[in-house]
Design a protein around this nucleic acid. Structure first.
Lengths: 135, 135
DNA sequence: AAGCGAGTTGCGAACAATTCGCAGTAGTTA
DNA sequence: TAACTACTGCGAATTGTTCGCAACTCGCTT
């Protein structure tokens, strides 16, 4: 038969809920557990919130998704593929903008050189005010 | 008479709890509401958690303290005076290190130039791995 | 010095977000 | 197909934070 499903390759069982959670994260870009659950319910209404939480955690363990804390209290998840940009969180309007990681390159370098601190650029939330709100 | 108390200058009443919360934040550097409460209880055991939360909020409104989200869920507060450094949060050991804002200067400049995004350097949490945990 | 009114405090309940324990269900492997 | 065990659903338990309300007290005014 063909190649294994990506979840199988990670040693996980392939359940409809699990697939749905993963594809929801991918479709949403970044979303809170609550939002993921809502998305999943569009096609699988019965899914339980606990299941969403557990699957997000599981998927994070195998590296398919990641989470960040974008301000308030809740964690925000996004797919691992999409880890090529920083998150610019606007404290005024709450929007989340993106910027390529390049802009942080020498900043990261500084921290590494001067402090031995290895910045996890993928797990990065930057607070400030977006261009729209500055006006 | 002499100059007004700093809290009076902000239009706030001077209560023992309020002063204690403020000095606890100053003494602790950065701390969660829970930690602040614990600190305050050392000298004023009866203080209520709600009061700590309310005072932190009030003090933040007048600019004497600030909060950041340093990872997990809880907010972390620190005194406004102390806003001269970045927080380097180690995802492995949970420690919070400091670095002068200078290291971020050109990074901030980049974001401003390229995206019109005004980074709030004082409200800044950087995730990564500290020198000690890298080893 | 005494009194008043508004800002504050304590306390307990209300909430929201997240985690846990358990029993039943359903992928997987042999 | 049978059996093993991960996974799901559900409800209860936790944790962190906010709210409503009555009592209190800070700071101003007489």
């Amino acid at each position: 038969m063909a190649e294994k499903h990506e979840l199988h390759e990670k040693g996980l069982r392939l359940t409809p809920q699990r697939e749905l959670v993963l594809s929801a994260v991918r479709a949403l870009g970044h979303a809170t557990p609550e939002e993921v659950a809502e998305k999943v319910r569009q096609t699988h209404p019965g899914i339980n919130l606990s299941t969403v939480y557990r699957n997000l955690e599981t998927l994070e363990n195998v590296g398919l998704v990641q989470h960040t804390h974008l301000g308030h209290g809740g964690a925000t998840y996004h797919a691992a593929e999409e880890l090529t940009h920083l998150h610019l969180v606007c404290g005024t309007c709450g929007s989340v903008g993106d910027a390529p990681i390049d802009v942080a390159a020498n900043f990261v370098q500084n921290l590494s050189d001067d402090y031995g601190f290895k910045t996890d650029v993928t797990h990065f939330a930057i607070y400030g005010t977006c261009a729209a709100c500055v006006k």
